[in-house]
Design a protein around this nucleic acid. Structure first.
Length: 279
DNA sequence: AGAAGGACCTGCACGC
DNA sequence: TGCGTGCAGGTCCTTC
């Protein structure tokens, strides 16, 4: 489900609510594909230790857990990183214990003060795993789109012969970008998603990087995009979907030139663009 | 090596 | 009402 801005919103929200808390108990559902690391190992690593921090790396939420004396540093021996990937429909919620478990709840961490951190995932594309080996910190498959320099950005995309849309979705290049923000940033950079990455000029790649950073930052400010069931740590919805210029606007007039937005398939994903604004 | 296509899941909106 | 179809924010594996 969520892309960088949604994961950022969720990670920050969860961090604010649970950091410093001790994990009293761990419950897991037994759904086999949800747990990349065996559930018993995850439970053993988490139970009794303290949550030092929750942050985002790409589309992954990284929860650093350590013995109390190490809580201030995620790098110290004795700490463990729990990786939470939300897949398409995963949610991470901080709930009072008396609120009934939602259907498709796959993990519950009971905190020292009684609240519960719950992982809910109807479609089960989400994954929980421990990052090994600590104390090495998890850095993700690709580069961070919010901090990459222009030269590095060009070095990453210039050799690619795939359509630029497909390259943007490739998590081993930049991580964190998904279908919404790929389409939205290409529209804002006025680049057609079918263009071959290798044939984009330096000026176009510079425009794309600027558009990407702008779109992601703006979306983070608005709490992400709520297309169907995305919600943050409190269950509140984001508002960036109101800013979408092309995503899921097939047939509707372009907000700039009134040409109907077109939808095509690239890399198996539906892709939305304005045939007049994007060259 | 790199790219396309299907698989993995459930739920919702739509048309008949 | 109920059924079938198509669609969904992601990744991973196989095939070509």
């Amino acid at each position: 489900m969520p892309e960088l801005p949604e994961v950022e919103t969720i990670a920050a929200g969860v961090h604010a609510r649970v950091h410093g808390q001790r994990i009293a108990r761990v419950w897991t559902s037994g759904a086999p594909q949800t747990f990349k690391t065996p559930e018993a190992e995850i439970a053993a690593a988490l139970a009794g230790s303290r949550i030092a921090s929750v942050r985002r790396v790409g589309k992954t939420i990284v929860m650093t857990v350590g013995a109390p004396s190490f809580a201030a540093s995620s790098q110290r021996v004795g700490s463990v990183e729990l990786l939470i990937h939300l897949g398409m429909t995963g949610r991470l919620l901080v709930s009072a214990p008396e609120i009934p478990l939602a259907p498709h709840t796959h993990a519950v961490l009971t905190l020292g003060d009684g609240r519960e951190l719950r992982f809910v995932d109807p479609r089960r594309f989400g994954r929980l795993s421990l990052h090994a080996p600590p104390p090495t910190t998890y850095t993700g498959p690709g580069r961070e789109p919010l901090t990459i320099t222009l030269d590095d950005f060009i070095a990453l995309f210039h050799p690619r012969r795939t359509p630029i849309k497909a390259a943007l979705l490739d998590q081993s290049l930049l991580h964190g970008i998904g279908n919404i923000y790929a389409d939205e940033s290409l529209f804002r950079a006025a680049i057609r998603p079918t263009r071959q990455s290798a044939r984009l000029t330096r000026a176009e790649l510079a425009r794309l990087r600027t558009a990407l950073v702008k779109v992601l930052r703006h979306a983070i400010e608005l709490g992400g995009s709520s297309v169907s069931d995305y919600v943050d740590a409190d269950g509140a919805r984001g508002f960036f979907q109101l800013q979408h210029k092309v995503y899921r606007r097939t047939g509707q007039p372009c907000r700039v030139c009134k040409t109907p937005i077109r939808r095509i398939q690239i890399a198996g994903r539906s892709t939305h663009f304005c045939p007049s604004c994007q060259m």
